[in-house]
C-alpha cells in the first residue's frame, strides 16, 4: 500500500504529441477490430469444416474446385500484398506519385482476384451448385464470399485513400490511414492462406 503523492500541473502533451498518440490509438484499435474479424472468420471456418460433408447428394469440392484457378487467385492476392508493401515504403519516404503507382497496381491485382472469385462463384451457381443447393455449399459460399466482400471493401478503401493522396498529398494522417489499410489488406491475405489450405486444397484432394 503506497501513499500517493500527486503532482498536478504536469505539462500537457503538445498538440503534435497528441496527434501522434491519436494515430497510435487508432492503429491499436484497428488491430483489435482485426482480432474480432479473425474470430468471425474462424467461426465461418469451423462451420465450413463441420458442414464439409453435408453435400445433400449434390456436388462436392472435388467436382467443383479447380487447382489452377485457385493458384492464380493466390498469386494475385500475394502479389497485391507485396505491391502494397512497396507502396508502404514509398509512403514512408514521402513519395506521393510512387505511392499512387503502387496503390494502383495493388488495386488492379485485387480487382483481378475479385473478378476471378466472382466468375468462379457465378459459374458454380448457374451450374446448379449455388449456396441454396446444400449445407456444404452454403458454408463454402459464405466463407469465401465474406472474404471476397472484405477484399472488395478494401478495394473501395484503396480508391478513397488514393484520391486523398492525389488531392492532398502525403501527410501523417493519410499515412496512418494507409497503414491501417495495409493491416487490413495483409490480414485478408492471411485469411486467404487459410481458405486455400482448409477449403480448396483438401477439397481437391
Amino acid at each position: 500500500m503506497t501513499d500517493a503523492v500527486i503532482t498536478a500541473g504536469q505539462d500537457e502533451d503538445t498538440e503534435a504529441e497528441e496527434a501522434e498518440r491519436a494515430i497510435d490509438e487508432k492503429a491499436y484499435g484497428f488491430w483489435i477490430y482485426l482480432m474480432s474479424d479473425a474470430i468471425i472468420f474462424a467461426l465461418l471456418f469451423a462451420t465450413f469444416v463441420v458442414m464439409s460433408h453435408n453435400t445433400a447428394d449434390g456436388p462436392s469440392g472435388h467436382t467443383l474446385f479447380r487447382l489452377p484457378h485457385t493458384f492464380a487467385e493466390t498469386m494475385l492476392l500475394l502479389a497485391s500484398s507485396a505491391t502494397f508493401g512497396f507502396a508502404s515504403v514509398a509512403i514512408a519516404a514521402g513519395q506521393r506519385w510512387r505511392t499512387l503507382a503502387w496503390l494502383s497496381v495493388t488495386f488492379l491485382l485485387g480487382l483481378g482476384f475479385v473478378a476471378m472469385k466472382i466468375s468462379e462463384l457465378y459459374g458454380m451457381a448457374v451450374a446448379g451448385a449455388g449456396p441454396w443447393r446444400s449445407g456444404f455449399l452454403s458454408a463454402f459460399f459464405t466463407l469465401v464470399g465474406t472474404h471476397g466482400a472484405h477484399v472488395s471493401v478494401g478495394l473501395v478503401w484503396i480508391v478513397l485513400l488514393g484520391c486523398e493522396v492525389a488531392l492532398r498529398g502525403l501527410n501523417p494522417f493519410v499515412a496512418s490511414r494507409l497503414c491501417r489499410l495495409g493491416l487490413f489488406w495483409h490480414f485478408l491475405d492471411i485469411v486467404w492462406i487459410n481458405i486455400f489450405s482448409v477449403v480448396y486444397l483438401p477439397g481437391i484432394l
Partner: peptide, 16 residues
Amino acid sequence: PPQLSKMPTSPHGGEV
C-alpha cells in the same frame, strides 16, 4: 493541423 517535424515513418519506428 499540428506540424509534425518528421516525415511519416513506419508506425513501428525506424525506417521502412
